[in-house]
Design a binder for these strands. Structure first.
Length: 620
DNA sequence: ATCGAATGTCATTCT
DNA sequence: GTAGAATGACATTCG
């Protein structure tokens, strides 16, 4: 890349005089001498020679860079967004997108700072530069604010510390020529930029970038603020804050000359694709970092241009009022807000009507026009509507005329959030088809692959919505399903619905209620299963406890029996008859009555013993 | 291609 | 008798 290191060997006096002569010529050409010191002049000289030698190299490299910039966009299939590809080793590799605006605004400053200047020699010129900025741009105060993103605010003469002379020459300097080139104002440059922006390739890239302008800002060429500041009087100078220290004063003229040559080479034969990665939002962000300062005409013009070039060709029959119109006819401030808030490419065929159930009232033109049109159609839904003659919607539609327009359709507009306002018959089909290209393009499907379940349930619901729309039923499905029977009947009586509509409404109500009932039933079933499982567990535990207790009782019983038998024999051995002989345990047994008395009963003659030997045992 | 889970829908019965 | 709830059975979708 550009070798801007100062050679260690100081030039001779003769060389310095020669360089001085050359330098005066440069001064006569408009360059400011105080910016440069002797080393700079030496660098200038060396760089001039190198630039001549490497001119061909640079051209080739720049072409490759342009190609690489085009390849920097990678479609994230998961989110459907274009995200930057990490380009390891490439000088154009920019920091990760997350705060794009910050990066975009900080880059010019970094570019200016990355130029390797001897510290201290440029402090004066930098102060002058800042002073010039302050005099030129009324909003120069914001410059410090912008600088805050990269370096701490340094007031007054301390601004020279902003020049990070310690930093090596950044490859960005050589690979981002535009910021420096743009500093060379002039009609030829204006013309070059005008031609650049009018190139079809650039517009094509703009269209691509409009798919996700938010990400695009990460690719904003660092030159954009300078470009719009200097070459487009159309844009106000209010964006000067993003410029930071004016590179034209902070940069050696050889840099400028070199890049100007390169720039001309780039602009003339082929478009500078590096800058072409601007989408409308990136366009707006780059040129008008402050939303208030962004001229809505610029946003509107770019949005229009994009929509006309990329979106509208896919909409053979544009609805009477589409998002483009809404944007175009809305106040400029709103247009800007939309420019910043929503990707324009998603507006016409956005499948985000997913949340139709959540907002019953259309609050914006986009919602009323497109939100109800998409209904979160899935491909299967589209097939049902368009290619499946046996589908319910088709049945209803074919059996009865779809020209039904309730008398109080306008009155019931408040309940048409889901069904949407009545549309002319011819608008339905094209609108349904319009949802296809975006889905097939993978742009709108990606984000929804994460939420398939939710999407699916809404798709289910949308089938009845489609049918209701097909028959021009002036109620929302929610109303049809959830209204109490009295209110529902009252609503039915208010509107003169034909037989098919009534049947559909009742079917919708039945299905809706049955759906809820099925959900409740399954929920109950699951709860029952869970409860039974819990009960089974508790019963199993109780059974184990009882078994344990039983075994303990058994062992205890055995122990007591053993003790009892021992005691029995002990007692029995103490008994003596009249002759003093012990009783035989095989012939007699001890029995105890309820009152506690113990009797000796002969075993063989139990029946008689009770009546005959009622004598208490003489236990000693 | 197959399987299982989740969900929607229909038919039937019960309240 | 009707509407709604409950539920089994089947279909559909999707991972």
């Amino acid at each position: 890349m550009m070798d801007v290191e100062v050679p260690d060997i100081l030039p001779s006096q003769q060389d310095m005089e020669l360089i001085d002569i050359l330098w005066r010529q440069d001064v006569d050409l408009g360059a400011r001498r105080e910016v440069f010191d002797r080393n700079h002049r030496q660098k200038v000289h060396a760089l001039q020679r190198r630039s001549e030698q490497e001119e061909e190299k640079k051209q080739q490299r720049l072409r490759e860079e342009q190609k690489a910039l085009l390849d920097q966009l990678q479609l994230d299939e998961e989110t459907g967004e274009y995200i930057p590809k990490p380009l390891a080793g490439s000088a154009l590799t920019t920091p990760p997108p997350p705060p794009p605006e910050t990066q975009a605004t900080a880059n010019p400053l970094e570019l200016a700072q990355n130029v390797n200047f001897p510290e201290g020699d440029d402090s004066m010129s930098f102060d002058e530069c800042m002073q010039l900025l302050a005099e030129t741009f009324p909003l120069v105060e914001d410059t410090s604010a912008c600088l805050d993103t990269a370096v701490p605010p340094v007031p007054g003469s301390d601004t020279h510390s902003l020049m990070p002379s310690k930093q090596p020459a950044s490859p960005l300097t050589s690979l981002s020529p535009a910021p420096i080139i743009a500093d060379r104002r002039g009609p030829e440059m204006d013309q070059a930029w005008m031609e650049l922006w009018s190139l079809p390739e650039l517009q094509h890239c703009l269209n691509l970038q409009m798919e996700d302008p938010l990400e695009t800002t990460a690719y904003l060429p660092t030159s954009i603020p300078d470009v719009q500041e200097r070459n487009y009087p159309y844009y106000p100078l209010s964006n000067a804050p993003n410029v930071g220290p004016n590179p034209v004063e902070a940069c050696p003229p050889t840099f400028i000359n070199t890049f100007e040559e390169v720039f001309h080479d780039m602009v003339a034969p082929e478009p500078m694709m590096g800058n072409a990665t601007l989408g409308p939002k990136g366009f707006c962000d780059a040129f008008y970092p402050d939303p208030v300062l962004c001229p809505p005409e610029a946003v509107e013009a770019n949005v229009k241009e994009h929509l006309e070039s990329s979106v509208l060709p896919e909409l053979p029959k544009k609805p009477p009022l589409n998002a483009t119109d809404a944007h175009s006819h809305s106040p400029p401030g709103e247009a800007l807000e939309r420019c910043k808030q929503e990707p324009p490419a998603e507006v016409p065929d956005s499948d985000s009507g997913i949340s139709l159930n959540t907002s019953p009232h259309a609050s914006s033109p986009e919602k009323s026009v497109y939100g109800d049109g998409s209904f979160g159609f899935s491909d299967s839904d589209m097939d049902d509507l368009d290619f499946n003659p046996g589908s319910a919607e088709s049945d209803y539609s074919e059996m009865f005329s779809l020209d039904f327009q309730p008398d109080d359709f306008q009155q019931s507009a408040l309940v048409l959030s889901q069904a949407g306002p009545p549309e002319p018959q011819q608008d339905k089909k094209p609108k349904l088809h319009n949802t296809k290209p975006a889905e097939e393009g993978g742009q709108s499907e990606g984000p929804f692959t994460k939420d398939k379940q939710k999407r699916r349930s809404e798709v289910r619901l949308s089938r009845d919505e489609q049918r209701a729309r097909a028959l021009r039923i002036p109620f929302t499905v929610d109303m049809i399903i959830n209204l109490p029977v009295d209110d529902f009947n009252e609503l039915m009586s208010k509107h003169q619905l034909n037989e098919a509509q009534l049947a559909l409404v009742r079917d919708i109500r039945r299905r809706g209620k049955n759906k809820v009932a099925a959900q409740n039933c399954r929920k109950r079933k699951m709860e029952n299963i869970v409860g039974l499982e819990y009960e089974l567990d508790s019963l199993t535990e109780e059974k184990e406890l009882l078994q344990m207790e039983r075994s303990q009782n058994g062992s205890s019983l055995r122990k007591m029996k053993h003790q009892l038998s021992t005691l029995y024999l002990q007692v029995f051995s103490m008994l003596r008859d009249e002759e003093g002989k012990p009783y035989s345990p095989s012939d007699y047994s001890l029995q105890q009555t309820t009152d506690g008395s113990v009797f000796l009963v002969p075993r063989t003659k139990k029946t008689h013993a009770k009546s005959k030997d009622h004598k208490p045992a003489s236990a000693d």
